[in-house]
Amino acid sequence: MTSDIAVHTEGLTKFYGARRGIEGLDLEVRAGEVMGFLGPNGAGKTTTIRLLLDFLRPTRGRAVVLGLDPRRDKAVLHRRIGYLPGELAFPGRGRADELLRFFADARGGVAWSHVTELADRLELDLSRPVHTLSKGNKQKVGLVQAFMHQPALLILDEPTSGLDPLVQHEFLGMVRDARAAGQTVFMSSHVLAEVQQSADRVAIVRDGRLAAVERVESLGRRAVRTVEIHFDDPVDAAEFTVLPGVSDVVVSGPVLRCTVDGRLDPLVKAAARHSVVDLLSAEPDLEETFLSFYYHSEPHGEGAVDAARAGA
């Protein structure tokens, strides 16, 4: 594996008895990119992360992280990773600054000015005891400890859980800054919108299997659009229901409404046979696209995965 690959998995599989956590995961995360790891709760995202960190042992398959073996090189590897778990549990009754100083010392020393800068960005009061903090403020402590030592790889499990929208926006700014500094970010989420602004690519998992790997912009091009066309004269719905990618066709006199999955070209060419007064196309909703991938499509991600490996 080359140094430009931060995370590499081959056939990574974990079963809990008869229940599948993740199966046959083949994934590469490039060094210096932000990869969104997307799927509904229970899809296998947290299982994958725990396997990468050697908190779980795989049933079969393997993972290489920063060129190291997660089991054999665990101690070295963990010093180079910033990890935010999906479920935070901080021990003791100390203040936030005391807990973060402990983490800083454990990592060989971190400039305290950098810690306070991160806390200020997230509007975190470091003087408060951690056990008194709200879920959102505990999440901020978790984010600071993950980012504070400027790790080569950030592994973030549902990082915006409990954060208000303004803090979510600041967090995404931190992710973009990390990428600009050459760090790699692997960020799991069940909400596509929160990675849309910062991710280079997204990997979508469903039912423990990889469904697709896409660049964010290409996923948008696959998106389902709502289209409304106004003609000079009434049109026949049958002319449009046979078009590829066109569904939910409703015609009311000279107005046609439909849903288009993929390219608009077939619909536009069919409409051009008539006199068009107006055409309205709603912006693709990436959340709808994600749901379409997850609930309606067959596991067609193999082609997308191959394209991604080829540099798509």
Rank of each mutant, 00 (worst) to 15 (best):
Phe147Tyr: 14
Glu33Ser: 13
Arg179Val: 10
Arg71Ala: 00
Ala199Pro: 02
Asp73Thr: 00
Gly36His: 05
Ala104Arg: 03
Met148Pro: 03
Thr132Gln: 06
Thr13Phe: 04
Gly39Ile: 02
Asp207Leu: 15
Gly67Ala: 14
Arg309Tyr: 10
Arg121Asp: 06
Val242Met: 02
Asp125Gly: 10
Ser252Tyr: 02
Lys14Gln: 06
Glu170Asn: 08
Asp261Gln: 14
Pro284Leu: 01
Arg93Trp: 01
Val175Tyr: 09
Glu170Gly: 04
His114Thr: 07
Ala180Arg: 10
Glu10Ala: 15
Ala106Glu: 10
Arg20Asp: 05
Gly42His: 03
Ser161Ile: 09
Lys135Leu: 15
Asp207Tyr: 08
His149Gln: 13
Glu98Ile: 00
Gly301Val: 05
Gln183Ile: 05
Ser218Gln: 04
Val202Pro: 07
Arg79Pro: 03
Ala6Met: 09
Glu33Asn: 08
Asp200Tyr: 06
Leu56Phe: 09
His8Arg: 15
Ser252Gln: 10
Asp26Thr: 05
His78Ile: 05
Ser127Gln: 13
Ala180Trp: 02
His131Ile: 08
Leu166Val: 12
Phe15Arg: 15
Val213Phe: 11
Pro85Met: 11
Gly182Phe: 11
Pro244Glu: 11
Asp120Ser: 15
Val167Asp: 01
Ile22Val: 10
Gln168Thr: 14
Arg30Met: 04
Val185Thr: 02
Thr2Trp: 01
Leu172Asp: 08
Leu279Phe: 09
